[in-house]
Amino acid sequence: MLSFTKTGQSDVFKIDENVFLHFNFAFNRVIEVLNTLDSLALADKEKINICWNLLIVEKDYTSNVNIRAKIIEEALQRIQDNRSYQRRSIVTPQGEVFIPPMTDKGDDGLPKYDFEQDAGAIYASFFMQYHIDLLAEIDKLSWFEFSTLFEHLSEKTPIKKIIAIRSDDLRDYAEEPDKQMTIMEQQDYYHLEIADEIEEQRNLEANGGELFGNL
Protein backbone atom coordinates (compact mmCIF):
# COMPACT_ATOMS: atom_id res chain seq x y z
CA MET A 1 0.00 0.00 0.00
CA LEU A 2 1.28 3.46 -0.87
CA SER A 3 1.69 5.56 2.27
CA PHE A 4 3.14 9.00 3.02
CA THR A 5 3.69 8.09 6.67
CA LYS A 6 5.12 4.56 6.41
CA THR A 7 7.54 5.00 3.54
CA GLY A 8 10.16 2.25 3.51
CA GLN A 9 8.55 0.16 6.26
CA SER A 10 6.65 -2.19 3.97
CA ASP A 11 9.88 -3.78 2.73
CA VAL A 12 11.23 -4.78 6.17
CA PHE A 13 10.32 -8.11 7.78
CA LYS A 14 11.38 -8.81 11.36
CA ILE A 15 12.47 -12.42 11.91
CA ASP A 16 13.46 -11.96 15.56
CA GLU A 17 14.87 -9.24 17.82
CA ASN A 18 18.13 -8.97 15.89
CA VAL A 19 17.33 -10.37 12.44
CA PHE A 20 15.57 -8.44 9.69
CA LEU A 21 14.96 -9.35 6.07
CA HIS A 22 14.22 -6.88 3.32
CA PHE A 23 11.77 -7.34 0.45
CA ASN A 24 12.54 -5.95 -2.98
CA PHE A 25 9.14 -4.72 -4.18
CA ALA A 26 10.30 -3.16 -7.45
CA PHE A 27 7.33 -3.24 -9.81
CA ASN A 28 9.05 -5.38 -12.43
CA ARG A 29 10.00 -7.99 -9.82
CA VAL A 30 6.45 -8.18 -8.45
CA ILE A 31 5.10 -8.62 -11.99
CA GLU A 32 7.59 -11.45 -12.56
CA VAL A 33 6.49 -13.03 -9.27
CA LEU A 34 2.84 -12.88 -10.33
CA ASN A 35 3.71 -14.46 -13.68
CA THR A 36 5.63 -17.19 -11.85
CA LEU A 37 2.73 -17.93 -9.53
CA ASP A 38 0.34 -18.12 -12.48
CA SER A 39 2.53 -20.63 -14.33
CA LEU A 40 1.11 -24.10 -14.89
CA ALA A 41 4.53 -25.43 -15.87
CA LEU A 42 6.19 -24.95 -12.47
CA ALA A 43 5.82 -26.99 -9.29
CA ASP A 44 5.07 -25.08 -6.09
CA LYS A 45 8.58 -25.66 -4.73
CA GLU A 46 10.04 -24.07 -7.87
CA LYS A 47 7.62 -21.15 -7.56
CA ILE A 48 8.64 -20.46 -3.99
CA ASN A 49 12.36 -20.55 -4.80
CA ILE A 50 11.92 -18.26 -7.83
CA CYS A 51 9.85 -15.83 -5.76
CA TRP A 52 12.50 -15.93 -3.05
CA ASN A 53 15.25 -14.97 -5.49
CA LEU A 54 13.13 -12.15 -6.90
CA LEU A 55 11.83 -10.61 -3.68
CA ILE A 56 14.33 -11.29 -0.89
CA VAL A 57 17.44 -9.12 -0.60
CA GLU A 58 19.22 -11.45 1.84
CA LYS A 59 18.94 -14.51 -0.44
CA ASP A 60 21.42 -16.57 1.59
CA TYR A 61 19.40 -16.31 4.82
CA THR A 62 18.02 -19.84 4.35
CA SER A 63 17.71 -22.56 1.75
CA ASN A 64 14.90 -24.30 3.68
CA VAL A 65 11.88 -24.21 1.38
CA ASN A 66 9.44 -24.39 4.31
CA ILE A 67 10.89 -21.25 5.89
CA ARG A 68 11.09 -19.57 2.50
CA ALA A 69 7.41 -20.35 1.89
CA LYS A 70 6.36 -18.66 5.13
CA ILE A 71 8.39 -15.52 4.37
CA ILE A 72 7.12 -15.38 0.79
CA GLU A 73 3.58 -15.69 2.15
CA GLU A 74 4.19 -12.51 4.16
CA ALA A 75 5.52 -10.76 1.05
CA LEU A 76 2.49 -11.81 -0.99
CA GLN A 77 0.11 -10.55 1.67
CA ARG A 78 1.82 -7.16 1.58
CA ILE A 79 1.59 -7.11 -2.20
CA GLN A 80 -2.07 -8.07 -2.09
CA ASP A 81 -2.80 -5.27 0.39
CA ASN A 82 -6.28 -6.58 1.20
CA ARG A 83 -7.60 -5.70 -2.25
CA SER A 84 -10.55 -7.61 -3.65
CA TYR A 85 -8.72 -9.20 -6.57
CA GLN A 86 -9.65 -12.59 -7.94
CA ARG A 87 -7.99 -15.07 -5.57
CA ARG A 88 -6.02 -18.13 -6.53
CA SER A 89 -3.57 -20.10 -4.44
CA ILE A 90 -0.46 -22.21 -4.22
CA VAL A 91 0.07 -24.93 -1.63
CA THR A 92 2.84 -24.58 0.93
CA PRO A 93 3.69 -26.82 3.91
CA GLN A 94 1.74 -24.35 6.05
CA GLY A 95 -1.35 -24.59 3.87
CA GLU A 96 -2.77 -22.53 1.04
CA VAL A 97 -1.32 -19.13 0.21
CA PHE A 98 -3.72 -16.95 -1.72
CA ILE A 99 -2.22 -14.91 -4.50
CA PRO A 100 -3.64 -11.97 -6.44
CA PRO A 101 -3.33 -11.86 -10.22
CA MET A 102 -3.71 -8.08 -9.88
CA THR A 103 -6.19 -7.79 -12.69
CA ASP A 104 -9.64 -6.31 -13.05
CA LYS A 105 -12.23 -8.99 -13.62
CA GLY A 106 -15.66 -9.10 -15.16
CA ASP A 107 -18.80 -10.93 -14.16
CA ASP A 108 -17.25 -14.08 -15.63
CA GLY A 109 -14.36 -13.83 -13.17
CA LEU A 110 -11.84 -13.55 -16.00
CA PRO A 111 -9.11 -10.88 -16.00
CA LYS A 112 -9.35 -7.83 -18.24
CA TYR A 113 -5.62 -7.13 -18.52
CA ASP A 114 -2.32 -8.91 -18.15
CA PHE A 115 0.96 -7.20 -17.27
CA GLU A 116 2.93 -9.41 -19.67
CA GLN A 117 0.67 -9.46 -22.71
CA ASP A 118 -0.29 -5.79 -22.32
CA ALA A 119 3.20 -4.53 -21.52
CA GLY A 120 3.35 -2.30 -24.60
CA ALA A 121 0.00 -0.67 -23.92
CA ILE A 122 0.87 -0.16 -20.24
CA TYR A 123 4.24 1.36 -21.17
CA ALA A 124 2.58 3.74 -23.65
CA SER A 125 -0.11 4.68 -21.10
CA PHE A 126 2.40 5.60 -18.38
CA PHE A 127 4.42 7.63 -20.86
CA MET A 128 1.30 9.34 -22.22
CA GLN A 129 -0.18 10.36 -18.87
CA TYR A 130 2.78 10.63 -16.50
CA HIS A 131 5.74 10.99 -18.90
CA ILE A 132 7.26 8.01 -17.08
CA ASP A 133 9.52 5.67 -19.06
CA LEU A 134 8.88 2.35 -17.29
CA LEU A 135 11.94 0.77 -18.88
CA ALA A 136 14.06 3.41 -17.16
CA GLU A 137 12.32 2.57 -13.87
CA ILE A 138 13.27 -1.11 -13.81
CA ASP A 139 14.32 -2.02 -10.24
CA LYS A 140 13.59 1.58 -9.18
CA LEU A 141 9.84 2.22 -9.15
CA SER A 142 8.11 0.36 -6.31
CA TRP A 143 5.12 -1.89 -6.88
CA PHE A 144 3.02 0.28 -4.59
CA GLU A 145 3.75 3.43 -6.61
CA PHE A 146 3.25 1.58 -9.89
CA SER A 147 -0.09 0.03 -8.89
CA THR A 148 -1.41 3.37 -7.58
CA LEU A 149 -0.48 5.14 -10.82
CA PHE A 150 -1.93 2.27 -12.85
CA GLU A 151 -5.21 2.44 -10.96
CA HIS A 152 -5.57 6.13 -11.77
CA LEU A 153 -4.76 6.03 -15.47
CA SER A 154 -7.17 8.00 -17.62
CA GLU A 155 -9.83 6.22 -19.67
CA LYS A 156 -8.14 7.83 -22.68
CA THR A 157 -4.92 5.85 -22.24
CA PRO A 158 -4.27 2.80 -24.46
CA ILE A 159 -4.52 0.18 -21.69
CA LYS A 160 -7.78 1.58 -20.31
CA LYS A 161 -9.26 1.60 -23.84
CA ILE A 162 -8.25 -2.05 -24.25
CA ILE A 163 -9.80 -2.93 -20.88
CA ALA A 164 -13.01 -1.18 -21.95
CA ILE A 165 -13.11 -3.24 -25.15
CA ARG A 166 -12.59 -6.50 -23.28
CA SER A 167 -15.25 -5.53 -20.73
CA ASP A 168 -17.87 -4.60 -23.32
CA ASP A 169 -20.98 -6.79 -23.31
CA LEU A 170 -21.95 -7.81 -26.84
CA ARG A 171 -25.54 -8.26 -25.72
CA ASP A 172 -25.82 -4.49 -25.36
CA TYR A 173 -25.52 -4.19 -29.15
CA ALA A 174 -28.16 -6.71 -30.18
CA GLU A 175 -29.97 -3.94 -32.08
CA GLU A 176 -26.76 -2.78 -33.79
CA PRO A 177 -25.33 -5.81 -35.59
CA ASP A 178 -22.59 -3.84 -37.41
CA LYS A 179 -21.30 -2.31 -34.17
CA GLN A 180 -21.60 -5.66 -32.43
CA MET A 181 -19.45 -7.24 -35.13
CA THR A 182 -16.84 -4.48 -34.81
CA ILE A 183 -16.60 -4.93 -31.05
CA MET A 184 -16.46 -8.72 -31.46
CA GLU A 185 -13.51 -8.32 -33.84
CA GLN A 186 -11.78 -5.97 -31.38
CA GLN A 187 -12.31 -8.39 -28.52
CA ASP A 188 -10.89 -11.20 -30.62
CA TYR A 189 -7.85 -9.06 -31.47
CA TYR A 190 -7.22 -8.19 -27.80
CA HIS A 191 -8.11 -11.62 -26.45
CA LEU A 192 -6.15 -12.51 -23.31
CA GLU A 193 -4.16 -15.74 -23.29
CA ILE A 194 -4.36 -15.92 -19.51
CA ALA A 195 -8.17 -16.10 -19.78
CA ASP A 196 -7.76 -19.38 -21.67
CA GLU A 197 -5.41 -20.67 -18.96
CA ILE A 198 -7.92 -19.81 -16.23
CA GLU A 199 -10.68 -21.58 -18.15
CA GLU A 200 -8.38 -24.60 -18.39
CA GLN A 201 -7.85 -24.50 -14.62
CA ARG A 202 -11.60 -24.34 -14.08
CA ASN A 203 -12.09 -27.39 -16.29
CA LEU A 204 -9.43 -29.27 -14.35
CA GLU A 205 -11.12 -28.37 -11.08
CA ALA A 206 -14.50 -29.42 -12.40
CA ASN A 207 -13.02 -32.77 -13.42
CA GLY A 208 -11.20 -33.29 -10.12
CA GLY A 209 -7.73 -32.69 -11.55
CA GLU A 210 -4.89 -31.17 -9.55
CA LEU A 211 -4.00 -27.60 -10.44
CA PHE A 212 -0.78 -27.49 -8.48
CA GLY A 213 1.65 -30.07 -7.21
CA ASN A 214 2.40 -30.32 -3.51
CA LEU A 215 5.78 -29.66 -1.99
Rank of each mutant, 00 (worst) to 15 (best):
E74N: 12
K105P: 00
I79S: 09
T92V: 13
P93S: 12
M102C: 14
G109Q: 06
V65H: 05
E74T: 11
R68C: 13
K105Y: 11
P93E: 09
Q94N: 14
Q80K: 12
A75V: 00
A75Y: 07
D107S: 12
G120N: 13
R83W: 01
R68M: 15
Q94H: 07
R88Q: 11
L110A: 07
E116W: 09
G106P: 01
I99H: 10
D114C: 11
A124F: 01
G106E: 05
S84L: 06
V65D: 04
A69C: 07
D108S: 12
M102W: 06
A121G: 00
N66G: 12
N66W: 05
D118S: 09
D107I: 11
Y123G: 00
A75K: 04
V97W: 06
E74Q: 14
I71N: 10
Y113G: 00
I90R: 08
I122V: 13
R88D: 13
I90G: 03
P93T: 10
F126A: 10
Q94G: 10
G95I: 05
A121K: 10
K112W: 03
L110R: 01
V65A: 13
Q86P: 01
I72E: 02
T103A: 15
S89E: 10
D81N: 15
Y123M: 05
T92P: 01
Q77R: 14
A75Q: 07
K70L: 13
A75H: 07
K70S: 15
M102L: 14
R83C: 06
S89F: 15
Q77P: 00
E73P: 00
S89H: 15
N82G: 12
I71S: 01
D114Y: 03
S89W: 14
R78V: 04
I67K: 11
I67Q: 15
P93R: 07
F115C: 07
P93W: 04
S84I: 03
F126S: 03
I79C: 08
R87E: 14
G109T: 08
D118W: 02
K112N: 13
L76V: 13
E73C: 09
D104H: 07
D118V: 07
R78P: 01
I72N: 05
I71K: 09
I90T: 04
Q80H: 12
I72C: 06
R88S: 12
I71A: 01
E96S: 09
N64S: 11
G106N: 13
Q117H: 11
S84Y: 12
Q117L: 08
L76R: 00
I79M: 06
F126K: 09
I90H: 06
D118Q: 03
M102F: 14
I71W: 04
P111G: 05
I90D: 02
